[in-house]
Structures are given as structure tokens and as C-alpha cells.
Amino acid sequence: MLELATYEGRKRVKGSLALALLFTALAGMYTGTFPSIVEGMDPETLDQLTSSYPDAMIEALNLQSLTTIEGYLASQLYTVGWILLAGLYFGYTGAGLIADDVDRGRMDVLLFLPVSRSRLVAEKFASVLVPLVAINVVVPVVVYVASRAIGYPIAALDVVMMHLLSIPYLLCCAAIGLLFSVVVDRASIAQRSVLGALFGLFLLESVVAGTDFGWIGNVAPMHYLDPTAILMHGEYDLVAASVLLVATIALVGASQVWFARKDVA
């Protein structure tokens, strides 16, 4: 059981360590620069500067407040680094899960194994848990320790919940990539397509938020993860996380059905 998932997961260990180191550096950089920003400018001036940005930028970057460590990390590290960059990474990874083997002519070998196509898709998808666990174990520790080291401690529970609630979001991004991976045979096309789709959804959700067309943004997975609400207000939206998990299951199921009926050249 899960031999394929284990094999695929082992192949991702080195990449996961590199990813964890990258986000560790990013977390350390953003946390470490906060004192120089908040102490180098009057808080009122900083808030006025923030409010002068266009509404779309404020929504896109969650720029509610840069005068607190929670608001600063919510907008800089978690909106830019986590929702956007990590989301794109997992979408890109998901888009290569099936298409890469088809593109390189290795899928025929895998289909000779005594596993169904549905199980193959599910176990391939399960391998993304390796980088997912790696970054969500290492980064919150770095953020918490670094915030205490600079004299602006952040609540440990809020940091932990931020990362726990981000897991359904990142899984959903990977599931969107998986769907592209089974629909498109060329890995490069699938990966570019999902990057464009996720970035487009990020922009869409930012542009329509607070307008009469705000309901359109409900289709974007990033709509269901709000770092500012978690870190600044201690609000944990479990319903939104459940929506993302249901969407992930639906996307993986759709990918399994599509691949089961697909002719692999």
C-alpha cells in the first residue's frame, strides 16, 4: 500500500529541504527587518502611507497595518510569500505530477504496475505532502523564535493556526495543478497554464474585493485564507478551510475520473 506515494515522496525530500530553507530565509528576512521599518518612521505617517495605496493593492497585499509585527508579516510574508509564492509553487508541482511522466514517455511503465489509474493519481498527489509538511513545520518555528529575538513577540497559537489553515489552501493549489496535469500532456504547458491561472485568480480576487462583484472572487482559493484575520485578530475560519478541503477532494476526484478515461499516447 502507498508504495508509489512513498517512492514519489522520497524523490521530493531534497527539493523540500531546499524549499524549507528558502522560506526560512524569507521568514527571517521579513521578521528581522520589521524593527528598522517601524522604528524608522512615525506610526501615523506609516499608516497614512499605507492608506494612500490604491484599493486593489491594499486588498492584494492585505495592507491593513504595517505598524504591528502581525500586520507586517500578514501582508509581506504570508500574503506575498505564502499565498502567492507558495501557492504558485504547489500549483506548479501539481501540474507536473502526471503530465511530466506522460511527456517523458514514462507513463506506460507506470501503467503496467498493478495499480489502478485512480490510485496512481491519488498517490502521485499524496507526494506533495512532503514539501507541504516541511515548510509548515520549519517556518512557524522560525517566525516565532525570530519575533521574540527582535523584541516583538507574536502569539504562538496565531502562528500555528496560520500554518495549519494554510494547508488546505496549498493542497487546493496543488489539486488545481493536478487537474491541468491530467488534461494537458505537455508538462511545460500544464505548468505555465496553472501559474497563469493561479496568478490570475489572485489578481481577480484582489480587484473585485469590496465591490458589487465581490462574489466572483469566491472562485479563488486565496479568498478563503486571510492572514490578517488570523494574525491580527485571532480569527480562525474553519468553514473556509473546510471549503478548500472539499474543493481539493473534488479536484482530485475529477482528475482521477479524467485520467481513468484518457488515452495515454
Rank of each mutant, 00 (worst) to 15 (best):
Y92C: 09
I69W: 04
V115L: 15
G151Y: 10
Y144T: 13
Y152A: 07
R119T: 03
L164V: 12
L85E: 01
V121S: 12
L61K: 04
I167P: 12
A74M: 04
G200H: 03
S75K: 06
A155K: 14
S116D: 07
M162Y: 13
G91L: 04
A175R: 14
R106H: 12
L195K: 15
F112R: 09
V130K: 13
G91A: 07
A175K: 09
L77I: 02
F90C: 09
I176P: 01
G151W: 02
L170F: 11
V137C: 02
D185Q: 11
N62S: 15
L84T: 06
L170S: 13
L164F: 11
T93C: 00
D158S: 14
H163Q: 08
L157P: 00
R186V: 00
V121H: 13
T79W: 05
M57N: 01
G96A: 06
G105T: 09
Y92G: 00
Y144A: 14
D158R: 15
A134Y: 04
S166C: 08
P114I: 03
L84R: 12
N62Y: 12
S116L: 06
A99W: 00
A74C: 08
I167L: 15
Y169N: 02
I69G: 07
E123R: 03
V115F: 10
I69S: 06
Y78I: 05
C172V: 15
S75L: 10
G151D: 03
T68H: 05
G87S: 13
D101F: 07
A156Y: 09
V160A: 11
V184E: 02
V130E: 11
A156P: 04
G151H: 13
L165H: 14
